[in-house]
Simulated assay, not measured.
Amino acid sequence: MNSRDNPFAGQSGGYDISFGAQPPAAREPAAPAAANGGSDLIKDTTTAGFTADVIQESRKQTVLVDFWAPWCGPCKQLTPVLEKVVREARGAVKLVKMNIDDHPSIAGQLGIQSIPAVIAFRDGRPLDGFMGALPESQVREFIKKVGGKAPDPLEEALEQAAEALAAGDRDTAAAIYGSVLEAVPGNAVAVGGLAGLMLDAGDVDAARELLSEVPADEKEPPELASVRARIALAEEVSAIGDPRQLVHRLETDPQDHDARFDLALIQNAQGDRMEAADNLLHIVRADRSWRDDGARAQLLKFFEAWGMTDPATLSARRRLSSLLFS
């Protein structure tokens, strides 16, 4: 699916254009333009373009190849039915049409002896097919069987945002989350992602306001749970004093667990996750009974806020397990 098919695309043509996605690979010069006014779902191909248009494309999704000829009456009956049902499938399959009068070699290699013939390709190989002008209901059943579930534009947009965020492209991620929320207000994953970016920028109030649009839910996505935990931690930090005084207290008394605990909260708020974990683990190692195992409990809150796959979470969790079970 591209930006033209995706309802979450912006006015400029969608996030895959506006946010610097790489353009698709150039096609064979001899391949004709798409037959349906530019839609990527339906196009004509040539012998030279078959590998790119069918074999390579079928590694992404199922591609139907319609072998036809201008003199074939049943072909003229089948083609509009095929195109209609492919469009209705909204991206579950793509349709590539090949005129066997102009390009006979592929049909010959596949052993096609009569037309119309439709062959479904998946993962670069023929999957299934039929011959003759089937009625619309049977064409629809065939596409349902070989096509599977159509791509979900909302899921694709959120995946694009997550990939941009993982790559450090915060502007792109924020723009995609914003587009999703325009189309689906209150989407929990988009709210969590955008609110997290607001927290990264230090705007706790804006993140809190955005989060208020989504009621708390036991089944809320991890993105949202993480943001709620980060906001709670930020509120705790706001009540803590000057970190320099805490450092001075620790220099005077390394066993001042209250100072070390508060310093860990500040370090986390400043993005120093490893240092925050070090201080809490120091308390766990020294005195599990302090505040009823409060250092370990706070460390678990950090894990929730950081996310289960964050490097700081993984490292600190291993060290905590070593302390608890060795």
Rank of each mutant, 00 (worst) to 15 (best):
N2H: 13
N2M: 06
S3K: 08
N6K: 08
P7T: 11
G14C: 07
S18W: 09
F19I: 13
G20Y: 11
Q22G: 13
A25S: 13
A26D: 13
P29T: 11
A30K: 07
A34N: 07
A35I: 14
G38H: 09
D40N: 15
D40H: 12
L41G: 05
T46L: 05
F50P: 00
T51V: 13
A52C: 09
D53G: 05
E57T: 09
R59H: 06
K60Y: 11
V65Y: 00
W68C: 01
P70Y: 07
P70E: 06
C72Y: 04
C72V: 08
G73V: 15
V81A: 05
E83G: 09
G91C: 01
L95K: 04
D101L: 14
D102G: 10
S105C: 12
G108T: 15
Q113L: 14
I119D: 00
F121G: 00
P126T: 08
G129S: 07
M131F: 10
A133F: 04
P135S: 09
S137P: 04
E141R: 12
K144L: 08
G148Y: 02
A150E: 03
P153D: 02
E156I: 06
E159H: 10
A162W: 00
A162L: 01
A162H: 06
T172E: 04
Y177I: 01
G178A: 08
S179W: 02
L181Y: 01
P185I: 15
A188E: 06
V189F: 05
V191M: 07
A195E: 01
A195T: 10
M198A: 10
M198R: 04
L199G: 06
A201C: 02
A201H: 05
V204G: 05
L210K: 11
L210Q: 08
E213R: 10
V214I: 12
V214G: 03
A225G: 14
E235C: 14
E236G: 13
S238P: 05
S238D: 15
A239D: 15
I240R: 08
G241H: 14
P243V: 13
L246Q: 05
L250E: 04
D253E: 14
Q255S: 15
Q255E: 15
A259Q: 07
A259N: 11
A264E: 00
Q267C: 02
Q267K: 00
N268K: 00
N268M: 01
G271E: 01
D272E: 15
M274V: 14
E275I: 03
E275G: 02
A277C: 03
L280F: 06
R285G: 05
S289N: 14
D293A: 14
G294D: 07
A295E: 06
A297M: 13
A297G: 09
A297W: 12
Q298E: 06
Q298I: 04
L300G: 03
W306K: 02
T309D: 14
P311F: 12
P311K: 09
T313N: 07
L314K: 14
S315C: 09
R318V: 06
L320K: 02
L320G: 02
S322A: 11
F325R: 03
